[in-house]
Design a protein around this nucleic acid. Structure first.
Lengths: 137, 137
DNA sequence: GTAATTCCTATTAAATCGATAGGATTAATA
DNA sequence: TATTAATCCTATCGATTTAATAGGAATTAC
């Protein structure tokens, strides 16, 4: 299941990408428009800023803006920051690898083989889609 | 993340599929061999039996056996029983559809579009793989 | 009739998730 | 300079889910 955090984050990024002009977009505006609890969204925006997707301006007339072009922002990267591993088991994760405690040898594990395929296909989608694709049309 | 329940369930099914002869396989044997807590595995086997993947024999020399051929058991079906929806958001789930409470119109939702692609690619893998594929070689 | 097994329900401890609270800091502007 | 409006930051809370355990009932082989 996709967490609300990730879903809200993706919606917020899309909203900013769609916004016209170069003025920063405010949390309160996104929150109202996308039905996202404002305080919750605050913490998500903070994460997105700290991980290099957004820039911010403080104080009156402040807000958030994209640092990179929408076409440069891969969904896979956003997902990793907000959701964590893309793989369904840690032992097939490229960026968050961990050994399973119940498997003496993961190459013998039937689940491992299956989950590599799932990971590869999911990754294909998430690498091919950028923020531009989400906000387009 | 794949739950332990699902992972254990898939391992247990694989173990039974690999077992030779037509005698029922016992929980205690699977539990030891696959490092799965026995009591936890008990409840998983029960679920798999009630959902039509396994048959059981009670009492001494009892145990579990496959009801269908391994090649007939699609991973997608097992996953739905043990893990629930395959889709990452309920609003793109084929078997567990639910409307999102934050989306007035899901066809306008950028996340929706992305998650349909993820679902379709995951489904492709889980439909193409059967228990035979997991237990083979 | 005894031992071995599945069957069933309930419970628990820990982790995670979604959301909120309360203020500190910064900047525009009147 | 004072006020207002925004981000920033840390902590916390309640609900849900997850992984696992407990304890015994029912069934069957021998």
């Amino acid at each position: 299941m996709l967490s609300k955090k990730t879903k809200y984050g993706l919606k917020a990024l899309t909203y900013i990408a769609k916004s016209v002009g170069d003025v920063p977009v405010q949390i309160s505006e996104i929150s109202k428009s996308e039905n996202i609890p404002q305080k919750f969204l605050e913490s998500i925006m903070l994460t997105l800023r700290k991980s290099g997707f957004l820039g911010s301006k403080k104080g009156k007339h402040g807000g958030y803006y994209l640092i990179k072009e929408p076409s440069e922002i891969k969904m896979a990267d956003v997902m990793r920051v907000l959701e964590g591993p893309i793989a369904m088991v840690p032992c097939v994760s490229l960026n968050f690898y961990e050994k399973c405690d119940d498997c003496p040898d993961e190459h013998e594990c039937s689940v491992h083989k299956l989950m590599i395929q799932v990971r590869d296909n999911t990754l294909k989608v998430l690498r091919n889609n950028t923020l531009e694709d989400l906000s387009g049309s």
